[in-house]
């Protein structure tokens, strides 16, 4: 194996070991940061799946995070369900909502789809503000009793929520990787490279796009539940935050490298480093992210991973198949 690929994979393994060991070594503040990292990674993986492969460039991803947050709050606090069941149901509700949303926005293409998804997200956020059981427009905090059901002691709760985020991120990464290596994924990769070409050789574009959209929804919904467990409240502008759950996510994927598996991982890491560096600069944080993203689109559309890939001869997380090996040649 090429040394560059070997180093890259060694780094990935080291990262995974670090994440597995994190609950045993990190302070509660550190653990919260890593939990946040994992939820952002899930959001980035899903936006990358939609925009990078399935040609569904949404600016309304925050809708499903918000739906998940509200559904989670409803099942856990209002209905008094089991906490882990509430998390799963949050994903299910997001999946159910994705059907009508898809019926609306799939009539639009390209930039129209992007803004159309934003309209839908805005409508859902405003509608969430009308739910009086959820505190209306100003939102409501989680009752202490409900919070404690995730762990009586604060430290236990952080660890439990961390494992939840870890499991979700691992599932998102592995299952999406599996999806991309399946027949459907190979079709999607062909679609990413040339939509007409893929259609001409018989890739069912419509079915693949529907599958991807439905695939992303439950992950986003469960991420919304985890975010709610960290913020301990639901409120329309925070739970449906376009800046946090869509704008940052788009910048993460674009900077890291859209249309690859390595890109969202690199982008999320870079995002958290930049956030710590630029934390005190106020509006400059977003101005820098915006300018860097535009620069990347103009200069290296495949982002940081695209730049690195010039020196690394193979993917660290291979989604393609090597035809040589399969036929026993090479």
């Amino acid at each position: 194996m090429n040394p560059a690929v070997l180093i890259g994979r060694a780094l990935l393994v080291a990262g995974a070991v670090f994440l597995l060991a994190a609950p045993f070594g990190l302070s509660p503040r550190g653990l919260q940061l890593v939990t946040e990292f994992l939820t952002m990674l899930v959001l980035a993986l899903m936006w990358n799946l939609l925009a990078g492969y399935a040609d569904i460039v949404t600016v309304g991803q925050h809708a499903f995070v918000g739906i998940g947050a509200y559904a989670f709050f409803g099942f856990l606090v209002l209905a008094g369900f089991d906490p882990w069941l509430s998390v799963l149901l949050a994903g299910l509700v997001a999946l159910v909502f994705s059907l009508p949303v898809m019926a609306i926005i799939f009539r639009l293409r390209a930039g129209y789809l992007a803004v159309g998804s934003w309209v839908v997200a805005e409508t859902l956020m405003l509608a969430a503000g009308k739910l009086s059981a959820f505190g209306g427009g100003s939102g409501v905090s989680m009752p202490v009793a409900a919070v404690k059901r995730f762990g009586a002691a604060t430290a236990d709760r952080y660890v439990n929520v961390y494992w939840l985020a870890f499991a979700l991120a691992a599932l998102a990464l592995l299952s999406t990787w599996y999806l991309m290596r399946s027949r459907i994924g190979v079709g999607l990769t062909a679609m990413r490279d040339s939509e007409e070409g893929a259609g001409a050789i018989g890739v069912n574009l419509r079915r693949a796009r529907i599958l991807c959209f439905l695939w992303a929804a439950p992950f986003l919904g469960i991420a919304g539940a985890i975010i709610t467990m960290q913020k301990l409240r639901v409120a329309p502008p925070a739970s449906f935050s376009i800046i946090d759950w869509t704008v940052y996510v788009i910048f993460i994927v674009v900077i890291g490298g859209i249309g690859s598996f390595e890109g969202p991982i690199i982008g999320t890491l870079v995002f958290f480093v930049l956030r710590e560096l630029l934390a005190d600069t106020g509006v400059w944080h977003l101005i820098v992210l915006g300018a860097v993203s535009i620069g990347i689109v103009l200069i290296e559309p495949k982002g940081i991973w695209g730049l690195l890939r010039r020196f690394v001869p193979g993917d660290l997380i291979p989604v393609g198949h090597s035809p040589g090996k399969r036929q026993g040649r090479a």
Binding site: A51, D55, V57, V59, R109, A110, G111, A114, V247, I250, V254, I258, G282, V283, W284, L286, I287, L289, G290, A291, S293, I294, V297, L298, P301
Partner: peptide
């Protein structure tokens, strides 16, 4: 003419830059 993604991303980045520059 480079597909749908670049022009969406560029105008999106521009939008965020203008908002924050005005705020600053």
């Amino acid at each position: 003419g480079q597909g749908v993604l670049p022009v969406i991303l560029v105008t999106f980045g521009l939008s965020i830059i203008i908002q924050n520059a005005l705020q600053g």
